[in-house]
Write a protein that binds this DNA or RNA. Structure first.
Lengths: 111, 111
DNA sequence: TCAAAACTGAAGCATTTACTTAACTATTGA
DNA sequence: TCAATAGTTAAGTAAATGCTTCAGTTTTGA
């Protein structure tokens, strides 16, 4: 599950659009309806729904419809998958730089 | 600089492709030439160069050409911009959930 | 009851993406 | 010197993206 390439594709792709990031920012401050998400965005409601579908497919956002209102909220776990991938890369190159540092320090000692 | 939407677009877009993530993973273990990056990928060298251009434009990767070999390495600072954005969202909803928890606890007291 | 509110879905369109092949330019090692 | 190596660039293409408009469907409040 974790590290599924296709899952990460969808996640990063979802975050690669400013409108969708804005929607995620809004939702990180609390649940919202589709209309509320649309309000600050300069595009049709239809376009917002399409962005929302992308976010939902990526697992970043979960929605439930009650009556005629669809309420959206962030799925915290999903975001951490992206975070984990980035952290692992960072760890890898930090470890590498440490080893490199050690190597250089040793080389210096050997003069 | 930090939080520049266009910059984040490029970054997340760059990470939204499995081939490019694989290249980043390879580079997080140390510098590599274009051919070395291409070796595990089932696509033409030309395609790899194009992916590399995307990574370079996003700021995630820096390259320098010496002789006929282009050597590529990760730009650590760039990755942390994406990390920061994600962390801020996580912080926002964690704070919100805390407040919500407090509110629910208080409501309970008031019975 | 019935118009307004809140979406939803389909079709169309311009742009971007992710490749391909092919032709090209430097560098280098024997 | 000169063929192999390493990469670059351009052109073409199929598919995906990010919108639009328009024509629905449910719900709901007066």
């Amino acid at each position: 599950m974790l590290h599924d390439p296709a899952q990460l594709d969808l996640m990063f792709q979802a975050l690669a659009d400013p409108a969708r990031r804005q929607m995620v920012e809004r939702l990180s401050r609390g649940p919202a309806s589709v209309s509320q998400l649309a309000e600050p965005l300069a595009m049709s409601l239809s376009a917002v729904v399409q962005h929302l579908n992308v976010l939902e497919a990526s697992g970043l956002v979960r929605t439930q419809k009650i009556g005629r209102v669809r309420t959206c909220q962030i799925e915290p776990k999903a975001l951490s998958a992206a975070e984990t991938w980035i952290n692992e890369r960072r760890l890898a190159w930090e470890r590498r730089l440490d080893r490199l540092g050690d190597f250089l320090a040793e080389s210096k000692d050997e003069t």
